[in-house]
């Protein structure tokens, strides 16, 4: 017994949908805005740097293995040097002794870079409120996405990752580049 799929019909449906979305491009070409294309490419090729310090690490591992398979979202490849990573996963408790290390790791990452605070401790210090724990990684470095939970369920992590992908998609590379260039020129010459 084989599956009875009406490919003719599916094809036609797809064509209609595309036609409605935008006028048909000349055959053999794909048309998109550069910003969108770059955002699309970036969001599916996330190289992550796992900064794992505590118990949340176990849940981070379970997101990576086949049950949840973070690779489905193009984020399966951890890099253990910050210079090759795009997304810094702060996984676990950050204490004041480690804070300079976290800051240096962040500073070594090349633009574009994003930060995910994984779990209650990385987001806010969690239930550790004492002389040694930093009350959230955002006291040290800017954070884009916070994933709650102690530790978060793998589903929550994937949800956070999808939110980050949406943010990456919308970021608007060309505008950001222009702004950075302007800022750089200003810092070099004093005037824009």
């Amino acid at each position: 017994m084989g599956l009875n799929i009406d490919y003719e019909h599916l094809n036609q449906e797809l064509k209609d949908t595309l036609q409605k979305a935008r006028p048909a491009p000349p055959s053999g070409f794909v048309m998109a805005k550069l910003d969108e294309a770059i955002g699309w490419a970036r969001k599916y090729s996330i190289f992550q740097y796992p900064f794992v310090t505590a118990c949340c690490g176990m849940e981070f591992m379970s997101v990576a293995v086949s049950h949840y398979d973070i690779d489905r979202f193009g984020a399966g490849m951890p890099r253990f040097t910050p210079r090759q990573a795009d997304v810094l996963f702060v996984v676990g408790t950050i204490n004041h002794k480690q804070a300079p290390i976290l800051k240096r790791v962040y500073e070594q990452m090349c633009e574009p870079k994003w930060v995910i605070a994984f779990g209650a401790c990385a987001s806010s210090g969690g239930f550790y409120d004492n002389y040694t724990t930093v009350r959230g990684a955002d006291k040290i470095i800017p954070v884009d996405i916070y994933i709650p939970g102690c530790p978060p369920r793998p589903e929550a992590v994937l949800d956070g990752l999808i939110m980050l992908q949406a943010q990456i998609q919308q970021e608007g590379y060309m505008n950001k580049r222009k702004a950075l260039r302007k800022q750089g020129l200003k810092e070099l010459h004093g005037q824009p």
């Binding site: 004041h96 002794k97 002389y131 724990t133 006291k139």
Partner: peptide, 15 residues
């Protein structure tokens, strides 16, 4: 009880 001694400048106060 809650006095911390940060080693790097914090982006916002802890509490």
């Amino acid at each position: 009880l809650k006095k911390s001694q940060p080693r790097v400048p914090l982006l916002s106060p802890e509490r």
